[in-house]
């Protein structure tokens, strides 16, 4: 009969450590090792069922997703003898695949990796279109716009990981939406008018920032917050 020196509870003869605090059981009077048959549970451990369904879904979806690009490719090649417009379909399908199916197939969520991957394929697709159509808009417009959206998503991710409070999250979301609009406006005006001017986005940015401030103030008022929760309880 041993007691845990740390917790004061009596420990079962089969225990080598206290299950409550991890302290090792050292009993000089108990020389022989405990009989494994006397343990309250057997050694066999039941395993959780594996995520077979997820894998199956991914394979099925991959095969289904092959239908539109293959049909388009055939249609394009058979009618004009070479690949022209179907390249866009192929690119868009590849992008959709990376967006949706890679996270589905992954065993564990890796949001940063997915974001990086999504940003990469989007830029690649846009660059391919720009190069194909001989457009000059990739560097001044597509690149900064895509990166601004990616930065905004990264900020949301960080916000949701760091902050648990509902109203802080809301405040962050509002401020980020306003800033994203301003960034979009800025890059478009830079591209079209060659000068960085904010027009329409000011009307979005100002209310967003004020609402964000209001949300932060509400976050400090516990009672009011509770009232909002109660009224909008679903």
């Amino acid at each position: 009969m041993s007691y845990c020196v740390n917790c004061g509870v009596e420990l079962d003869e089969t225990l080598r450590r206290c299950p409550l605090c991890g302290t090792e059981v050292i009993n000089p009077n108990q020389r022989s090792a405990p009989d494994p048959a006397a343990r309250p549970f057997p050694s066999k451990v039941e395993q959780l069922e594996r995520r077979a369904v997820r894998r199956f879904f991914t394979v099925m979806a991959t095969l289904m997703l092959l239908i539109p690009p293959v049909v388009c490719l055939l249609c394009n090649v058979l009618s004009s003898g070479r690949i022209t417009w179907s390249a866009y379909v192929l690119g868009a399908t590849a992008m959709a695949y990376v967006y949706v199916l890679v996270p589905c197939a992954a065993e564990h969520p890796h949001p940063w990796l997915f974001l990086l991957l999504d940003c990469g394929v989007t830029l690649l697709f846009l660059y391919a279109i720009a190069a194909h159509a001989h457009g000059d808009w990739f560097l001044p417009l597509a690149l900064p716009l895509t990166l601004s959206v990616a930065v905004a998503i990264a900020a949301v991710l960080l916000l949701f990981r760091r902050c648990r409070a509902l109203f802080v999250r809301l405040s962050g979301l509002l401020a980020l939406s306003g800033l994203l609009c301003a960034a979009i406006n800025l890059f478009i005006s830079l591209y079209l008018e060659r000068t960085p001017v904010l027009h329409w986005s000011l009307f979005v940015l100002a209310p967003c920032l004020i609402l964000a401030a209001i949300a932060l103030v509400i976050n400090r008022r516990v009672q009011f917050k509770e009232e909002v929760r109660r009224r909008f309880f679903i």
Partner: peptide, 25 residues
């Protein structure tokens, strides 16, 4: 195992003898 420790040690402090078994690996 913070809760178990907190709960059972409280019972011990209240003067109740507690014996522990577990399925720890």
């Amino acid at each position: 195992s913070e809760l178990e420790r907190e709960f059972f040690t409280r019972l011990v402090k209240l003067g109740l003898p507690v014996k522990i078994q577990s399925n720890e690996r």
